[in-house]
Design a binder for these strands. Structure first.
Length: 262
DNA sequence: ATGGTTGCTTAGCAA
């Protein structure tokens, strides 16, 4: 029985474009589970064998061109559930859940929302409500659960490089932040922020305008854990190194560790 | 600054 469980989440912005970097990162970081978002590939075209060669199983809920989520894990993922499972006829592949190491791990790619007032924004807010309903329908706040992914919400001004410029913009509106708080109201803790009260820590930087070198970012990738699991957190980091250089995703991995329960 | 960069798919969309 390992002493800790290491869990990571990373929006790779196409697993095919990022395959080399993603596999190199996985081989070096060796998390017990990695939640992937924006794989942008159908399940038949996911590089399963390359992950397998590193010792990782993969549970897939893919989609060609847009969206697509996955969970890679050292232990074989159990009880895999794909989608929000609420009878809604939603063709967008944005959620996959599996049990790994006794923890219910969920990889979520929440909608971007484009801009307030658009159909996409309404879909985003509704998707958050559906996700909240999914949690209350299928889970309890007293079980070990980690909801990981790209939420496309910067929860507070501290999560934004220029809060005044971003106020009311997509990812920073009152409605999105309210949806985020309702989600957390299930009984979830923002694991990174709980350990790191300091400003200037972001997980996403726009490709344009040299945003990364100037650290003009937002913290929109999160690990939300139920309180019992969150209380066992022994580390939480954002791997800025993975955002550096050529052919990087616009997101960095968020990595957390939990002491194993006894 | 209705700009700018990247990826998928091939001119336009999404982020």
């Amino acid at each position: 029985m390992p002493l800790a469980m290491k869990l990571a989440t990373w929006n790779v912005n196409s697993i095919r474009a990022r395959q080399e970097r993603a596999l190199a990162w996985l081989g070096a970081a060796r998390p017990d589970a990695l939640c992937l978002q924006e794989t942008k590939v159908g399940d038949a075209d996911f590089p399963v064998e390359e992950f397998r060669a590193l010792g990782y199983h993969v549970a897939l809920h893919g989609q060609r061109t847009y969206n697509g989520v996955a969970i890679a894990s050292l232990e074989e993922p159990r009880d895999v559930v794909r989608g929000l499972d609420d009878g809604d006829d939603d063709p967008q592949a944005r959620l996959i859940a599996a049990t790994v190491g006794g923890v219910r791990v969920i990889s979520a790619y929440c909608p971007n929302g484009q801009a307030p007032g658009t159909d996409k924004f309404a879909y985003k807010l509704r998707w958050f409500e559906r996700l909240s309903a999914y949690l209350t329908r299928r889970h309890r706040p007293d079980e070990p659960l980690a909801l990981c992914g790209d939420f496309n919400v910067a929860p507070e001004p501290i999560d934004v490089h220029d809060p005044q410029a971003w106020e009311g913009q997509t990812m920073c509106t009152l409605d999105e932040r309210a949806a985020w708080r309702r989600l957390c109201g299930f009984g979830l803790v923002d694991v990174y922020r709980a350990r790191h009260p300091e400003p200037g820590r972001y997980s996403w930087w726009d490709y344009r305008q040299l945003a990364f070198p100037f650290n003009k970012g937002l913290r929109i990738d999160h690990v939300l854990a139920t309180e019992g699991l969150a209380s066992r957190c022994i580390a939480a980091e954002i791997d800025r190194e993975a955002r550096k250089g050529k052919q990087a995703s616009d997101h960095a991995p968020v990595v957390v560790e939990f002491a194993t329960a006894h």
